[in-house]
């Protein structure tokens, strides 16, 4: 599945990792699903860079006590925003990386 090293973003988000035979394709190339595909290194770079940015802001940004949003103090508003951004990041990570590791036969597994 990972041999070609490409990720079809749209298809990946639908639980159908794209498989390409051959070398990297341009991120403007179209897959046979008709969706835009991004080279896997670029996807990984974007994910890692955004995670580093998130972590850096966690360690180095410390807002003051002033209310910045309605009555929320800056510190609390910033941390809640941070968690929201981390959740968005996790969503992309799960769609672009995580799902590729799941066994295909379990992709639509049931609940209990």
């Amino acid at each position: 599945m990972d041999s070609a090293g490409d990720t079809c973003a749209l298809a990946g988000a639908q639980g159908k990792p794209a498989v390409y035979q051959g070398a990297l394709v341009s991120w403007t190339a179209k897959s046979h699903h008709g969706s835009v595909c991004v080279p896997r290194p670029l996807v990984l770079f974007a994910l890692i860079a955004s995670a580093m940015g998130l972590l850096a802001s966690h360690f180095f940004v410390a807002p003051g006590p002033q209310a910045v949003f309605w009555f929320l103090p800056g510190e609390l508003a910033f941390r809640l925003l941070w968690v929201a951004l981390a959740t968005v990041w996790l969503f992309f990570f799960s769609a672009l990386v995580w799902r590729r590791e799941e066994p295909p036969e379990e992709a639509e597994g049931g609940e209990s």
């Binding site: 998130l54 510190e75 609390l76 968690v83 990570f93 799960s94 990386v97 799941e102």
Partner: peptide, 25 residues
């Protein structure tokens, strides 16, 4: 409020990632 910022953001990212890194395999 610093207690919230000390713990929650980093575990909100770290725990799910550890589920992927270790829990899944």
């Amino acid at each position: 409020l610093a207690v919230f910022g000390l713990n929650v953001p980093i575990v909100a990212l770290g725990i799910p990632l550890s589920f992927w890194a270790i829990g899944l395999p």
